[in-house]
């Protein structure tokens, strides 16, 4: 591995082997990795909200599951990825605080995951692995060379998906 490319909250980036790509401290947000296994090109978007059409101020496309995935695919195809061979690995969407069950805030992680799955399904992109929900944060690293998604959480063993 050469460089580890960092993706912030409401941000996206792409990476080509031998580099790797990471996002730190995913909470209720969802980290979506798209990967072209043949070209070894990967992209990662760290989305905060499910649906751009429900929000007036939606210029930052990387903030939403729907527009973030579209933009990521475009960026990947621009550098030679084939949109038909993409697969996905997703992580995050936790519920960090035990809010009352009626709270809108409580379900945001879950809704982010749902919206991500719907969008990927519409695009015909298969989800090869996921580690979503529960109540803890995750740092994820994706290595295009091997296609492995590494997940680190506090007090837990590193998971490899």
């Amino acid at each position: 591995m050469d460089n580890m490319i960092k993706v912030g909250m409401a941000d996206l980036n792409i990476c080509v082997t031998p580099d790797a790509i990471t996002t730190l401290g995913l909470g209720s947000c969802v980290g979506i990795v798209l990967y072209d296994p043949r070209k070894k090109i990967a992209g990662l978007v760290h989305v905060m909200l499910p649906d751009s059409t429900k929000i007036i101020n939606n210029e930052n496309k990387a903030k939403f599951a729907d527009t973030g995935i579209d933009l990521l695919i475009k960026k990947m195809c621009d550098i030679g990825a084939n949109s038909n061979s993409l697969i996905a690995k997703i992580a995050g969407g936790a519920q960090m605080f035990a809010f009352g069950s009626n709270s809108e805030m409580m379900r945001i992680g879950e809704r982010n995951v749902e919206a991500t799955k719907i969008k990927l399904k519409q695009l015909g992109i298969r989800i090869m692995a996921e580690d979503t929900g529960a109540n803890y944060g995750r740092t994820i690293e994706f290595y295009p060379e091997t296609g492995e998604l590494h997940i680190k959480s506090v007090g837990k063993e590193r998971k490899i998906l």
């Binding site: 909250m9 605080f97 809010f99």
Partner: peptide
């Protein structure tokens, strides 16, 4: 409401 975790994950809640 309390959470012990990575600061990024905790701050994602008000950020959202």
């Amino acid at each position: 409401y309390m959470s012990i975790d990575m600061s990024g994950a905790i701050l994602s809640v008000p950020a959202i």
